[in-house]
Design a protein around this nucleic acid. Sequence first.
DNA 1: TGTTAGCACTCGAATAGTTGGAGTGCTAAT
DNA 2: ATTAGCACTCCAACTATTCGAGTGCTAACA
Lengths: 345, 345
Amino acid sequence: MEELTERKKQILNIIIQNYLETGEPVGSRTISKYPDLNFSPATIRNEMADLEEMGFIIQPHASAGRIPSDKGYRFYVDGLIAQKDREITEIKDVMFERTERMEQVLKQVVKVLANNTQYATMISAPAISGTKVKFVQLSPVNEHQLLSVVMMSGNIVKNKLIELDSPLTAEETLKLNMLLNSSLNGLTIGDINLALIAQMKSQAGEFEDIIEQVLKTVADTIEDEEGLEIYTSGATNIFKYPELADSQRAKDFIEAFEEKEELKDLIADIESTGEGEPGTGIQVYIGDESPIGSMKDCSVVTATYELGDGIKGTVGIIGPKRMDYKNVMDNLTSIKKKLEQIVKG
Amino acid sequence: MEELTERKKQILNIIIQNYLETGEPVGSRTISKYPDLNFSPATIRNEMADLEEMGFIIQPHASAGRIPSDKGYRFYVDGLIAQKDREITEIKDVMFERTERMEQVLKQVVKVLANNTQYATMISAPAISGTKVKFVQLSPVNEHQLLSVVMMSGNIVKNKLIELDSPLTAEETLKLNMLLNSSLNGLTIGDINLALIAQMKSQAGEFEDIIEQVLKTVADTIEDEEGLEIYTSGATNIFKYPELADSQRAKDFIEAFEEKEELKDLIADIESTGEGEPGTGIQVYIGDESPIGSMKDCSVVTATYELGDGIKGTVGIIGPKRMDYKNVMDNLTSIKKKLEQIVKG
DNA sequence: TGTTAGCACTCGAATAGTTGGAGTGCTAAT
DNA sequence: ATTAGCACTCCAACTATTCGAGTGCTAACA
């Protein structure tokens, strides 16, 4: 893949910026009108054909202008991330005064962010990310019940009664115990990802139900202890963006916000991949890059905030791919700073 | 208004039931095909014209069949409520086993209900409804701040600092104190309804902002103490009903579920009006009867559950006007029973 | 060689007609 | 009181038709 010439970059940026503003496909005539680009539409068209061939832009249909592809957005966003001088948009709300409880603060944060950006927002409560599984023990209670005991670091123990469809032999129980311990020992919640779960299930064969229930216990334990609580706001902002507002998509999207399970997966993914550009703590998922199916036509921008001692949380904004990335990143940076100040100040 | 003849009742019931099933306007031909009604379409049409004149049914447009009006639904629902032999649809989920915390149970309840009915559901945590306002005191702190102190029964005290646009004279403060105490003293949260608020505001004249803030403090106090928590589920089920699924309506509806403030108003209203038919504890709001604007095209069916000692909560289902009232009422009755058993068993 | 004017072409969005059927109200006959 | 018959209405679905924005290509040009 050849490098982009300066002029191509310029045109690509114009296309993206214009599309972000208007939401309409951008044509060659429009671009040629930009003052810093003195070329005829025909010339622009040639360049656009190249850009399309390289995969940066797309033609929705033959007689329309171009819109950015995911790769195009990625180019644009990477450019934004590179320029470090993030402008701190002062959050002017009277928040963070009289912080009765962290919970209140977080609820305010998502609301303010949703208001400022007009996108959907979420935040995870600060949590210690180090809690690890120490051991797991399945013990038969009777023919139809199995007691699962999970111990986490810090000697936190949690029990759960699992109902069995059919009795388990002692040997089978032993095998399951070994599988669980060898797979889970020493792992944090962040390490337990979908791939691992799938793998364990396949190894467990017919007992995958039990695996699932044990994992649920582990998850419950960690959540209870760490309080992996997620607050959201502005999910209905999705209706502001016609390309997302059809009912099936909107339903799935809002459901993800109502259930919050998928959001937890997302946050786990974020925290496991580590922060994007060093220092900023800001990460951007464009379209399919996000692990959540119902958000494949969205972009997700997140920031991780740290309160010291490994206590951290994630705050994120989810909107259409053509979101105002700059504003969103500024807001997140600002919020991140504010949150981190709470502890110190 | 003349009484309905037996035949008119029969026809009206057929129209409603058919419309509930199909969602399509019901024509005279369709009705005449019912086995227990041996009349020609023409005869039915005459009756239908009468029913329309009386306001029980509506013609969406000139060449369509009829659909029930709110009054029609009311007729039908009243008929349902009258027949006391509510069928207890056994909730077959494994719920209520191992009730770790009430919170968990309630979250399960709304989910199960939403699944069973395919409507949106809500439940308020059981709360002591007896907490009353003992006194309210406004004290000037300085020119721009006013301290409001609210004491509730049980000697629960809550403070809030109110910002003033302009200073208040001693006389004005006294007047406000008197107004607040005379209006609020001895009232429970249920007694403080919109009408009362409006009345107080009008009496307060230019100080209505202050009244509002004081009332907010009262509400906050009660909530904190009583934990008026609301759990919801299935808000996105609204997309299943085309007549409600247009984006503006859906947005407002789902927003109400996200914010929960309006739901609290609704529950306050329910608890203040007392239970509908004695014994059942089931109440039905059809369309405009509900106090929530975003639900004017919906029906709300609620049941109040009591855990004894004045501790009670409200569980409700919100769906389209053409909801399956019978199934919904059965489900609510069943849940109500189950919840009340938790304490006893 | 890079740029541009000109032109035929394509495609979607919007608008306007066309049709068919379901349902009605009215009248006159039973 | 009931019903058959009929003219009428209106929506929903479908089918042109038009319009304009935008393209790719070719040939001319600097």
